[in-house]
Nucleic acid binder design. Structure first.
Lengths: 202, 202
DNA sequence: CAACCGATCTATACGTCGTATAGTTTGAAT
DNA sequence: ATTCAAACTATACGACGTATAGATCGGTTG
């Protein structure tokens, strides 16, 4: 809280927030520690003390991102009933999170920019996964699934929404600015789970 | 071919190949132009002339990667019959490509490192997509699908294998070195298309 | 055959970056 | 009041991407 140059209290969080703000307008790769430090009003050497280096700062940002994503996945379900609908909403929320803050989302999974072995990071990134898992587990027909099948569905669903997000953000599915197309494609995709089996039945 | 310092003929391709080799042992982010130039035995300013800059070189590598991926997706189907089996094999091939050369695969979709608007790049990255599309189109029951449904299935499938690849490579699904787990998870996932509808039926 | 010329590559320089290190300041405990 | 660890600054260093001017080559033209 203190505005003194030294010991201003929560520089760490300030730096994380500054990085998050920068991520709204530019990708992780083009963000420099010096730029973050300047925004926070500290010397460019300060971040290293709190985070050990650039990877450390990015890791802290990624951790916050995973917590934020997990929360978003939980919040999208308030007042939503029906197993199918709940799964559908969760998928939409995952994609929405990624699309609304592309750079924030991307840094969360760009392990070569992070201290991927950091315990807090591995713990944090397990949260969205467990929310998805619980969501699937709650679905009515999931009771018939054994642990391995449940995990298969989890991986399949997670992969689907995650892959869609990245493919969309990188322009592989069409113009990333075409929100109408995004709406259509994401719904078609989430709905195609009931279409896909036609293929399996040859 | 000439070993003279000047005009050695195909420096461009030499640089691309050198980059590809580096990608076997380190991620794109940690590769420097100067390092690539040194391997190719040229001055560190040379790459800029051929590719305009780092992004240009990476774009050339990404283009080669997409061609390579498209070829892999085609080659995996020789002698494989049955619509379901062919789709299955294509999915496996996509994942295999990504897992065998993680950095090569990742640079292909890391648009912030590339000249994403480059025509040759956008053309090249459309190839794997069209191979997938044809594969789906060839499946027996796909005849019943209209254009939009077909596209929905394409996006769903592509998203699934692509997302799985990235989640796996970033360690989100388990130890990336556990090949047995990879085998199990990928098969479970690809097979879960017939399990998923249970969820939709509530 | 000789002069030329565009393309290819080198040499050099510049600003920015991440990081390491030594020094300075602060708040709190003794 | 003094001490001390933590927080932050100041400085320096090597590596990087890029721009630019110069050197060198192959091929073409007269």
């Amino acid at each position: 809280m203190a505005k003194n140059q030294y010991h201003h209290g929560d520089l760490a969080e300030t730096l994380v927030k500054a990085t998050r703000d920068l991520l709204r307008s530019k990708p992780p790769t083009s963000i420099s520690l010096r730029e973050v430090a300047k925004i926070a009003g500290v010397s460019h050497g300060a971040p290293a003390h709190h985070f050990g280096g650039k990877a450390g700062l990015f890791t802290a940002v990624a951790i916050a991102g995973h917590h934020s994503l997990a929360t978003a996945l939980e919040d999208c379900l308030v007042g939503v009933s029906g197993a199918e609908k709940r799964l559908f909403e969760t998928g939409k929320a995952y994609i929405q999170f990624a699309v609304e803050q592309p750079a924030y989302f991307s840094i969360m999974f760009q392990t070569e920019l992070l201290n991927a072995e950091d315990g807090a990071y591995t713990t944090a990134r397990a949260k969205p996964k467990s929310v998805l898992r619980q969501c699937i587990k709650d679905s009515a027909s999931a009771e018939r699934l054994d642990e391995r099948q449940l995990n298969g569905v989890l991986v399949a669903l997670w992969s689907q929404v995650h892959g869609f997000a990245q493919l969309w953000l990188t322009g592989n599915l069409g113009d990333p600015n075409d929100t109408a197309l995004l709406q259509q494609l994401s719904l078609d995709m989430l709905g195609s789970l009931s279409v896909a089996p036609h293929i399996n039945c040859e």
